[in-house]
């Protein structure tokens, strides 16, 4: 169809009415794109129909738009509508920057927090090690204490009280001697803390003649909580003594520094 044929056909009037088929609608649309005259004709028809149909409206309707906007939950203020539209890019921009800043701050914070956490973790691990060591020590103590209790409960045990001597009359100690296992437990809790640079040395003695045998220095006297020390004693002891000696111990007892001494009563 030529543009004149389109205009004269009456199709365009039906097009505006919506009375054509889908196919015809598409053809008219194509003709409108192709011929400006056809488009203009459609616009003129439409304008006339808009006016005709509007004339049948019993009441003005323009004022109802706000009601529609309210029903749709849209902003009723025209100014706000503009704000929604225009500053959108600004809003986007600012929110973008804000997001970036928040992200940056967040990362920094996280970095710092991470550092703090690592330090805390290290501290906690050290504490853990310390606690584990303490637990281990406590277990050891407990084992020793249990072994000690078992030993002293044994009726074959020999109990030897060591009394305070001239240099320290208030000192005392106790030896529990299990002859079967050749073990002594020395309870040294009645001795004062040794002065700095000095250690206690434990001696096994035989009398007539007085012969001391070194049973070792008491290391870590201060650090041992219950001050009970387990010592091998293969000797045929008749008495036990404790002297204060220079650090590392002495080959023979310094008798002027004899703190406690006790004789095995039923020494055979």
């Amino acid at each position: 169809m030529t543009k004149e044929e389109y205009i004269e056909s009456g199709l365009l009037e039906l097009y505006v009415a919506g009375a054509l088929s889908d196919k015809e609608n598409q053809e008219v649309y194509a003709a409108m794109q192709k011929y400006p005259e056809v488009l203009q004709e459609v616009l003129d028809i439409e304008t006339a129909i808009v006016k005709l149909t509007a004339a049948a409206s019993p009441k003005p309707s323009k004022f109802l738009f706000n009601t529609i906007k309210e029903k749709l939950g849209l902003k009723s203020d025209g100014a706000k509508v503009v704000m929604l539209d225009k500053p959108k890019s600004n809003w986007m921009k600012y929110s973008g920057w804000a997001a970036a800043i928040i992200l940056g701050a967040g990362l920094l914070w996280q970095f710092n927090t991470n550092g703090d956490l690592e330090t805390q973790l290290q501290t906690v691990e050290v504490k853990k090690d310390v606690l584990e060591a303490e637990i281990e020590a406590a277990k050891t103590n407990l084992r020793e204490a249990n072994a000690f209790i078992k030993t002293i409960q044994n009726r074959d045990i020999l109990t030897v009280p060591l009394g305070g001597q001239a240099v320290s009359p208030s000192s005392y100690a106790q030896v529990y001697w299990d002859k079967k296992t050749n073990t002594v437990y020395l309870d040294a809790s009645g001795l004062p803390e040794p002065p700095e640079g000095k250690v206690y040395q434990f001696w096994s003695l035989t009398l007539n003649p007085l012969t001391p045998t070194d049973m070792g220095v008491i290391e870590n006297f201060s650090g041992d909580e219950n001050k009970i020390f387990k010592i091998e004693n293969p000797n045929d002891s008749q008495a036990f003594g404790i002297t204060l000696e220079p650090e590392g111990g002495s080959p023979g007892p310094t008798l002027e520094q004899l703190y406690t001494l006790g004789v095995v009563e039923n020494a055979s």
Binding site: A54, A56, S57, P58, K59, F65, V81, L84, D85
Partner: peptide, 27 residues
């Protein structure tokens, strides 16, 4: 776009109301 909506409403609301009224016959 609400502004466009309002403009189109202004152009056609009376026409639609006229067509509808012609069918329902109640304002």
């Amino acid at each position: 776009d609400i502004k466009a909506f309002e403009t189109l409403y202004g152009m056609y609301s009376d026409s639609m109301q006229g067509v509808i009224y012609n069918i329902v016959r109640d304002q």
